[in-house]
Simulated assay, not measured.
Amino acid sequence: MYTLKKSLGQHFLKDEDICRKIVAELQQCAFSRLLEVGPGGGALTKYLVQIPGIDFKAVEVDDEKVVYLEKTYPALKGKIIHQSFLDIDKPFEESFSIVGNFPYNISTEILFKVLDWIGSVDCVVGMFQKEVALRIAAKEGSKVYGVTSVLIQAYFDVSYLFDVDEHSFTPPPKVKSGVIRLTPVKQPLHMKSREAFTKLVKTAFGQRRKTLRNACKSLFTPEVLQDDIFNKRAEQLSVQDFAQLSFLMQ
């Protein structure tokens, strides 16, 4: 079989009902190319390789799991990218979807890498630590609304799908998990630039207890800072508010 490696944050799904639910949610999206991130022991893979008419690839960093997967699922020969997801180039020339029980120690980095492929990703269905999943899906006014919420929601509509209990995994993690789906926003957000927008969001939440006037004073002229919106704190601004405000940056 194979061994579990704590250094890679490996917690493998064993609950077949959860596996089927994830695949069913994925199939709510239309796609013809699919990348699975971190297939591990193949809990999702065995269902994904049965989806008809798609070009399927998986990315797996662990040597032992690559050998196991190719032996167990001969259809995967030549379809496994043997690297860390964070190091790979875009896996398909045309648009594709992504699915995975994402390693929790790099799950946020995985999403930021997905942002680099905006325009090429049709859908993402992923399992995260519940706290992270809730943060990604949070709306303004929530205590967990922050940098990740805004930067992801600028480009994707986020749906929190369902919780996953610790005992659905081997070994059980010490936290609950949550599955979310990301689909590209229908109307692109107008912003000064992605770079300016990102800088504004990170600066505003860098001192989230302060008003925007104090947290972001280095980004705007004294005249602009007189606007009433700067009386608010970062968590009170919607994604659209941040985008509009980016045009006023100096």
Rank of each mutant, 00 (worst) to 15 (best):
D227P: 03
L69E: 08
Y160Q: 01
L151Y: 04
D55V: 10
I110C: 00
I18M: 12
V66W: 06
Y160A: 01
Y155G: 05
R208C: 02
I81L: 10
K217V: 03
Q226L: 10
V185S: 07
L13E: 13
L225I: 01
I51V: 15
D228R: 14
F169N: 12
K202Y: 03
I88S: 05
S246F: 06
F12L: 12
V66H: 08
K65P: 01
S32C: 14
K210W: 01
V49M: 12
V158I: 15
F56K: 07
V185Y: 05
H82Y: 04
Q129D: 09
K176R: 12
F230N: 01
S238N: 10
A215S: 14
L4W: 06
P74L: 11
D227W: 00
M191T: 05
K192H: 08
E131P: 15
K192A: 13
D15F: 10
K113Q: 11
L248M: 09
P91Q: 13
A154P: 03
I22T: 09
D227Q: 11
C216A: 03
K90T: 13
I81V: 06
L111G: 05
G41P: 02
I152T: 07
K5Q: 14
L8D: 12
L8G: 12
R233Y: 02
Q207H: 07
A196H: 11
L225H: 00
K57R: 15
G53C: 10
Y2P: 03
P222C: 00
G42I: 06
F128T: 09
A215M: 00
S95F: 00
D89W: 06
S7Y: 03
K79V: 06
D165Y: 08
V99M: 09
D228Q: 10
Y145G: 05
R135S: 14
Y155C: 09
S120V: 00
Q28E: 12
I80M: 06
T221N: 08
V59I: 02
I118L: 08
T72F: 04
G126T: 07
Y2R: 14
V164N: 07
A243T: 07
Q10I: 15
L200Q: 07
F56W: 10
V59K: 01
K143S: 14
R208H: 05
F205A: 09
N105V: 14
L8K: 15
L111V: 10
C29I: 06
D89C: 04
P91W: 05
I18Y: 04
P188M: 11
L8Y: 13
S218V: 05
E109A: 15
G126C: 08
I51F: 11
A137S: 13
F242H: 13
V239Y: 11
I88A: 02
I98P: 05
I81H: 00
M1E: 11
D62S: 06
A196C: 10
E25T: 10
V185F: 09
T203K: 14
D63P: 15
T198S: 13
I80Y: 00
F12M: 14
S238W: 04
Q226S: 05
F230T: 03
V144M: 08
G141S: 04
V114K: 03
V99R: 08
T170Q: 14
V114R: 00
Q226V: 05
L212C: 02
L111H: 09
T3Y: 08
V239G: 10
K232D: 03
K232L: 11
G38D: 01
G146T: 09
A58Y: 01
T211Y: 01
A154T: 03
